[in-house]
Computed example of a mutant assay.
Amino acid sequence: MKLSTIAAGAATAAATAAGAAVSVLAVEGLLARRRRYLSADLAPPGSGVFGAGRPLRLVLLGDSTAAGLGVTVTGETVGGRLAELLASTGRRVHLSSAAVAGSRAADLDAQVARVLVHGVPDVAVILIGGEDAIAFTPLDVVEAELTATVRRLVTAGSAVVVGTCPDLGAARNFGQPLREIMAWSGRRVAAASAQAASGAGAGVVDLAGRTGGVFRADAGTLSADGYHPSADGYQLWALALYPLVYEASRTTSAPR
């Protein structure tokens, strides 16, 4: 067989394989979009008062995970778990949330504006990145938006902790191979977010690195839609975030 014939056959096979891969990804994407997800209306209240002692204002910003979608009571959200942990150290924690389901990094500016209308929070926790990873938001946009958000809060007087994009490879709503492509995109967004947040003065927690293995191994860490965390999943995130959140709370003094 001539080399030209072999090369042509190989090229045809490669093109066919590539076309098949694209078709599989298109089908997986369509199935993921058609899957029934939890409605944003099902998120529990994002506010509450926990404990007694010296006041501490804790605010959550970000996407549906910061809003607690996937659980039914405030105490099972990341914010609620963190508030309970902080309350156990003798603080009276005033928890509130400006998080909105579906938010990307570009939406944080409006959330900060709503927060600062009510005063400067002592500690602001930001959970963002999943929607940017799914939408393949340019990394320079993610970095610029998160940098601006953190700087605005730090300049106002808040201590800031950012939880970066979780491991999307653990999400059961995506089929393979789309799931691993989403995981790859999530890692890129997480790395860009970590660099931006750290450079702007925030503490950073790599949620994918700290908790992704457990999420992949235990489907019980996810809620019914296979994407949003369950109460157990949010507990894992809260425990990963807590050391930095606690240190941030120690820098606060008088109530504002």
Score class of each variant (00 low, 15 high):
A156N: 03
T211K: 01
V123P: 12
K2M: 04
R256M: 10
V27K: 09
F215W: 13
L86A: 12
L58Y: 11
A217S: 08
A21C: 13
E247I: 02
A105D: 07
S39E: 14
H94S: 12
L86K: 13
G51R: 07
A98N: 03
R92T: 00
L236S: 00
S253I: 11
V214P: 00
A148F: 07
G51N: 04
A15Y: 08
S47P: 08
R256E: 14
E76S: 05
G130Y: 06
P45D: 08
A20Y: 10
E143W: 01
A183W: 02
R151T: 10
T252Q: 13
A8Q: 14
G75Q: 05
V141K: 11
G48R: 10
Q176N: 08
R172T: 11
T137A: 09
S39F: 02
S158V: 03
E28D: 15
R91P: 07
R152Y: 06
V189T: 05
A156S: 00
C165A: 14
P166I: 15
F50S: 00
A17F: 06
I181T: 12
D122I: 06
A191W: 01
A32M: 10
R34H: 12
F136L: 11
T211P: 01
A32I: 12
P243G: 06
V112I: 15
A105F: 05
A110C: 08
G75S: 04
G157M: 11
A17L: 14
P44T: 02
V78S: 03
Q111I: 14
S185A: 15
H94I: 10
I128W: 00
C165L: 06
T221M: 14
L95F: 05
T12H: 01
P255F: 10
D218T: 00
A15R: 06
P45T: 11
S230C: 01
A191H: 01
S185F: 06
G233H: 02
V112H: 09
L127R: 06
A208D: 15
R35N: 12
A52Q: 14
A87N: 03
R81W: 08
Q235V: 04
V117I: 14
A106K: 07
T5N: 06
I128H: 01
D63C: 05
R210G: 05
V120F: 07
G80M: 04
G48N: 01
I181D: 12
S88P: 09
L69P: 09
H94W: 07
V214I: 04
G48S: 09
I181C: 10
P121W: 11
V100L: 13
A133S: 13
S223F: 03
V78N: 02
V27F: 07
G220C: 07
A217D: 10
F174E: 06
A98C: 05
L108P: 13
V22A: 15
A15E: 03
P121D: 13
A148D: 15
T65V: 15
A67E: 05
S223N: 00
R34D: 13
